[in-house]
Simulated assay, not measured.
Amino acid sequence: MSQPPDNLPVYRLLTGPDDTAFCHRVSAALALGYVLHGSPALAFDGQRIIAAQAIVWPPETNSSSD
């Protein structure tokens, strides 16, 4: 598949509290075919830890040989 499903963007930054729901969102994106882009980031908002993870849709690769 050359484009993400459901008109999703090629680049996405997933953010949210660092909890099970956030991990499930990242896992669901990986299951669709996205790949991680860089390391996750964490911040503290005064009450909880907020996580961010960039994901990208991998470019289509041509494996044809000439």
Rank of each mutant, 00 (worst) to 15 (best):
V35H: 02
P58H: 07
V56Q: 08
W57N: 06
V56Y: 10
L8E: 01
Q53K: 05
Q53G: 08
R12Q: 09
P58S: 00
I49F: 11
D66F: 13
L8V: 10
S64I: 05
G38M: 08
C23M: 06
R48F: 08
S2R: 07
G46C: 01
S65V: 06
I49Q: 11
A52H: 00
D6W: 13
G46Y: 01
S63F: 03
T20A: 13
A52K: 08
R48S: 11
H24F: 15
D66W: 14
P5A: 11
V56T: 13
H37I: 01
Y34V: 00
H24C: 01
A28F: 15
T15A: 05
S2W: 01
T15K: 15
P5N: 06
M1R: 02
D45E: 11
P9L: 11
S63V: 07
R25V: 04
C23R: 01
V10K: 12
S63I: 12
D18E: 14
D19W: 02
D66T: 03
Y11F: 15
G38Y: 13
N62F: 10
I50Y: 12
S39N: 10
A31Y: 04
G38S: 09
I55F: 06
Q53P: 06
I55W: 09
V35W: 00
R12K: 14
A43S: 15
D19F: 01
A21D: 10
P59R: 07
Q47D: 15
T15V: 07
L32N: 12
D45Y: 07
E60G: 04
H24N: 07
W57A: 03
S27P: 10
W57R: 00
V35T: 03
I55H: 00
I50G: 15
P58M: 01
P5R: 12
D66E: 08
